[in-house]
Amino acid sequence: MILSITKWLFGFVAVLVIGLLFYAFALPRPPDTTDPAVFLQDGRSVNYCDLPDLDGSGKSANDIPKAYTPGCSYTTIPIPILAECTEPLTEGVVDMRGLWLGVSGRVGHLERIEQCGNRVVVTAFGIIHDFRVDGTLKNGARDVGAVCNNFNTAIHFDDEGVMVFRLFNLFDTVFREMRDEEMIFTFIDGIETSTQRICQYPDET
């Protein structure tokens, strides 16, 4: 009996691992709908303290094609994906827009957050995550990970105003929240990184 259960568990784990590996490295990525124009200029030239007015006078989130990471990583920092979007933030969505630099925890952590409506684009470490904060995998971050692997994450804001990333909509992995003027980034390992707003990318990026 114990041997049968052990064999069943081993088989289940093996199938699960094979399935995850297939998804991560063999499953085709979605069609790339990124506007090529975002790579024609260097995103380091932008003043990220000059944020767009979300007054509804320009494009909506739906008017701008979803962006994806080119290949496994971008080599030139793209200009803001949502630069022309002025759709007001959806109710319950916390404004985290800006360029953020880690000053404690993961010191030097650097990421750019864009928002309009319920759409968010996080650009960091050569990767573009473009998603909706509606808690669904369909509209979540469907992109590449650190080793060029596929992944899919559902994202939502909880009742405390924390942006929660749920890998495969199964378990929480990354958290972002505002505390006064700082954006707090917490990874699955529990390390909490305090970031402060900066206006331009550092010269060494």
Rank of each mutant, 00 (worst) to 15 (best):
R97P: 01
H109Y: 14
F185Q: 04
D143N: 15
S57P: 11
P28G: 10
A37I: 03
P80E: 00
A83N: 01
P36F: 01
F187G: 08
Y23G: 13
P88M: 08
I128N: 02
Q115M: 12
E114K: 07
P78F: 01
N149P: 06
L20V: 12
L9E: 09
F171G: 05
A24C: 11
E91D: 14
R179E: 10
R179S: 10
K7D: 12
I77L: 14
L167E: 08
V144Q: 02
V120G: 13
A154C: 08
H129T: 15
T33G: 15
I77Q: 13
A83L: 00
L82W: 00
T205A: 13
P30V: 15
N139W: 04
P80L: 03
T75D: 01
F125Q: 14
I79R: 10
R29G: 12
D158W: 06
V174E: 07
N149L: 10
M183N: 10
A146I: 12
R176Y: 15
G126I: 05
D63A: 15
D159N: 08
P31Y: 03
A37Y: 04
R112A: 01
Y74W: 15
S104R: 05
L20T: 11
E177F: 10
V46I: 15
S45D: 11
V174K: 07
Y68W: 06
D35T: 08
V162W: 01
Y23W: 07
I198P: 08
E182Q: 14
L137H: 06
R97C: 01
L21D: 07
Q196G: 04
L3K: 13
L89I: 05
G98V: 10
R132D: 12
C72E: 00
T34G: 13
P202R: 13
G117K: 00
N139S: 15
G92V: 12
P88G: 10
V147A: 10
G145Q: 03
L3E: 12
G43V: 01
R106V: 01
K7C: 11
P52A: 04
L99C: 03
T6A: 11
G92E: 07
A37N: 06
D35N: 14
V147Y: 07
E181C: 05
E182T: 14
F157C: 06
I127E: 00
P202F: 08
F175N: 06
D32C: 15
F125P: 02
Q196N: 06
A24D: 05
P30I: 14
M183R: 11
